[in-house]
Each structure stands twice: as structure tokens, then as C-alpha cells.
């Protein structure tokens, strides 16, 4: 679930690339095959009444919607919060807080997501909003850090050239710095997206629904098929979201870079 490190490094210039072109189709095809196999496998089982209550299309669709809603809303909030904060933190006069943010981002990784969620529950009770706060708090840092670092990493010569041709500071930020930071920001967003979709599974612990509920109920009621279906669906949705994130990255990246 903590793919943070992976994407954070993807923002660094390495010539390592995982998959392009036709290989882009591998993920959705593999997901489709796994889901089909799961469907066939469940079809061969003799489900008892408890299992039937969880494993029907109405429940699964509802869990999918809950899971995605939590992920999408949390990610949207992360974008709104983290990118402006990252830009503010990147400004020269705020450089002093840079090490603080980087330190918190690194340490924040060690705070267990489940602990954070449960602690939120003590403050806000159980439910969607609690899960949302926990998720956002957890996923804000990678985007904040990548935005800050991405803007700071822009070649000073480009900024000098921009200033030298008469761009205002605002124009330099909008037309040069932010544009060139887009790959790093997108990488951070994809990290936090994968983080969020994984952590949304734990939303079930605080009664926020999602596929995690199938996993937990299956274990509680000792119905392995339910747990396995929950696990496979959770993994599938994570791969799907990551894949969509990758597509978005390719699409939104400025050309020429």
C-alpha cells in the first residue's frame, strides 16, 4: 500500500521505465482475467446464506461505489490542499520550512495508517468523514513534498531567462515553474492515489464501507470465500486506479519533456 517511495523516486531522473506502448494494456487485461476467474470460482462454490448475503452483485456494486467515493473525494481534497501548500512552501522566503516538511513526510510514513484512522475515530466517531480525514492526512504529504521539490528543482537558468525576458513573478510561476513541476506533481499524486485506494480498505474498520468490509466480515464470520473475494476486488481496484493514474500521467505531462 505504501507505494510512496516508488513514485517519489520516479520523480527523480532515472532511466528506468516500467512498461510502455502495448504493455499499457497488460494491466486491464490481467484485471479482467482475474475477475473472470474469481467469478467462475465463486460460481462453483455452494454458498451458505451468510455468504450469499455478502456475495451478490448489489452488495459488491455498493461496496465498489463506497470504496471509489472515498478514494476520489480524498484525492480531490489532497489536490486542493497539497498543491497550493507545496507551491507556498517552495517560495524562496519559505525555504526554512523545507527540511521540516521533508522530515515530516519521511516520518509520517512510519505512522501506521490504521493507528491514524482509529485515533480519528476517538475525535469524530465512526463513518465516512472520519475515514476521509484519516486518508487525506495520510495522502497529503507525498503530494505536498513532490510539489515543493518539483518547483524547487526547476533549473535556475530557466527562471533567470524568464525573468530576463520580462515575465512577472506570477507569470514565471504559472508558465514556467508549475508547468515544469507537473511531472513531479503527477508522480506524487499517483503515489497518494495508490496510497488512498489501499487505505480506503481500512475505512471498513471505522464503518466507512468499501471492499475492506468484505475482507473483515469474511474473517469475522469465518467465511473464507467472502474474504478472498474482498481481497481480490481490493487488489483489482488498486491496480485499476494505479493504471488510470499512469494514463493520466502520460496524458497530462507537458510535451517536449
Amino acid at each position: 500500500m505504501t507505494a510512496e517511495t516508488l513514485r517519489a523516486a520516479a520523480a527523480q531522473p532515472t532511466n528506468l521505465r516500467y512498461g510502455k506502448g502495448l504493455r499499457k494494456l497488460i494491466t486491464p487485461v490481467a484485471i479482467a482475467i482475474v475477475l473472470a476467474a474469481l467469478y467462475v470460482w465463486v460460481g462453483t462454490l455452494q454458498l451458505d446464506s451468510i455468504e450469499q448475503r455478502s456475495l451478490n452483485s448489489a452488495v459488491i456494486i455498493q461496496k465498489a461505489i463506497e470504496h471509489l467515493r472515498l478514494t476520489v473525494v480524498a484525492t480531490a481534497l489532497v489536490v486542493v490542499i497539497a498543491i497550493p501548500l507545496g507551491v507556498v512552501a517552495s517560495r524562496a522566503k519559505n525555504r526554512l520550512i523545507t527540511p521540516f516538511i521533508l522530515g515530516t513526510a519521511n516520518l509520517g510514513q512510519a505512522v501506521p495508517a490504521i493507528g491514524l484512522l482509529v485515533l480519528c475515530t476517538f475525535v469524530m466517531g465512526v463513518g465516512f468523514q472520519t475515514a476521509l480525514v484519516g486518508l487525506v492526512a495520510y495522502a497529503v504529504l507525498p503530494v505536498l513534498r513532490n510539489t515543493m521539490v518539483g518547483v524547487q528543482q526547476v533549473d535556475p537558468a530557466l527562471i533567470e531567462a524568464a525573468r530576463g525576458m520580462g515575465m512577472t513573478k506570477g507569470q514565471v510561476l504559472r508558465r514556467v515553474e508549475l508547468k515544469l513541476a507537473v511531472p513531479a506533481i503527477l508522480a506524487g499524486l499517483r503515489t497518494s492515489l495508490v496510497l488512498t485506494v489501499g487505505m480506503a480498505t481500512m475505512g471498513a474498520f471505522v464503518a466507512a464501507g468499501g471492499f475492506g468490509e468484505l475482507i473483515i466480515n469474511g474473517l469475522k464470520l469465518q467465511r473464507m470465500p467472502v474474504t478472498i473475494v474482498g481481497g481480490v476486488l481490493t487488489a483489482s481496484i488498486a491496480f485499476l486506479v494505479d493504471w488510470l493514474g499512469g494514463l493520466a500521467e502520460d496524458l497530462l505531462k507537458p510535451r517536449g519533456m
Partner: peptide, 23 residues
């Protein structure tokens, strides 16, 4: 690249899902 892609794939699987699928 193949080993990186596989290990990146593993990291994409939510931990709760991986742990329960191992049971």
C-alpha cells in the same frame, strides 16, 4: 525492468488484501 515491474506491482496491492489472500 521486469523485476522492477513485478515488485512495483506487489507494492500496489493493499496490505490488508495481500495479508488476507495469504491466509
Amino acid at each position: 525492468n521486469a523485476s522492477l515491474a513485478v515488485s512495483a506491482g506487489i507494492l500496489t496491492i493493499p496490505s490488508l488484501a495481500l495479508l488476507t489472500l495469504l491466509i
